[in-house]
């Protein structure tokens, strides 16, 4: 059993606010882990700790056998191998869709222009971004298209691990579907992913493991059927039933 990433006892405070109170999580190669939990529970902060966008106050993160918390010199090299997809997409606003995907290939991987274009096209097509959109700027794309370009930007770097921070929370329901489909296919193709999301249906279908976080701690984790349908802890039950209620309300809306 080989873990691609292991987080041990991660703590983080912002000022007086103790956001993470000792979170540990290990993810195997090829696994899709979904993190759920109420807002403010520290899910996003934890995810951002994993590629050191946020520096943990305490704890250890081991990526691919390398302790990245103690040796920050290599962090730029490590980040090449960890894709990060943001809730707000964060495409580079001054670059077209294809240039967004090419930047990392040219400036980080130092590929030739030709090779970068080839790989960027491949990555864009793999997330369903067709040629007519390649030369559009982010502001000219829909949210769903932007998020798929952002995923392509990460995938083109051929990461060993993909972190997704509420990738569909900023999207309309119709657009959510197109992004979730891409993620579902990635998961089937054994891309290692950690996804923070509120999409329980997605978690049920795609996750190998669901982690429920609340108040800076992991409350419970296990296979999706267990956590989503039959959790041990009362807190998990309450959260899931609330989320379900919301989901039903949305569906019954005319």
């Amino acid at each position: 059993m080989s873990y691609i990433i292991e987080a041990h006892d991660i703590h983080k405070s912002f000022g007086k606010h103790h956001v993470l109170k000792g979170v540990s999580l290990s993810v195997e190669e090829g696994e899709t882990v979904v993190i759920i939990g109420p807002s403010g529970s520290g899910k996003s902060t934890f995810l951002r700790c994993l590629n050191l966008l946020v520096t943990p106050d305490r704890g250890r993160i081991v990526f691919n056998g390398i302790d990245i918390t103690s040796n920050r010199n290599n962090i730029h090299r490590i980040r090449q191998e960890i894709g990060f997809v943001f809730q707000q997409f964060n495409l580079f606003a001054h670059l077209t869709a294809i240039e967004n995907v090419m930047l990392g290939l040219l400036k980080v991987k130092k590929l030739s222009r030709e090779e970068a274009v080839r790989r960027a096209r491949e990555a864009l097509l793999s997330v369903g971004i067709t040629e007519d959109l390649w030369n559009k700027y982010p502001a000219q794309l829909s949210g769903g298209q932007q998020q798929r370009v952002a995923i392509a930007r990460s995938l083109a770097m051929e990461p060993k691990l993909l972190l997704l921070d509420e990738p569909t929370s900023a999207l309309d329901p119709e657009l959510t579907v197109e992004v979730l489909k891409v993620l579902e296919r990635l998961s089937r193709n054994k891309m290692t992913m950690i996804v923070v999301t509120h999409e329980l249906g997605f978690a049920m279908r795609v996750a190998d493991r669901v982690v429920f976080m609340e108040d800076g701690r992991v409350v419970e984790e296990g296979p999706p059927e267990k956590i989503l349908l039959n959790p041990d802890k009362e807190r998990t039950k309450t959260f899931i039933s609330k989320l379900m209620e919301l989901y039903k309300m949305e569906r019954s809306r005319p």
Partner: peptide, 26 residues
């Protein structure tokens, strides 16, 4: 936006390169 910078370093660009290729052009 600071998020542009975050996206740049998340790709593995160094701080200087993030400035030069992402923040400065904007």
């Amino acid at each position: 936006p600071k998020t542009q910078w975050e996206a740049a370093i998340s790709l593995g660009l160094s701080s200087y390169r993030s400035m030069i290729y992402v923040v400065m052009p904007q």
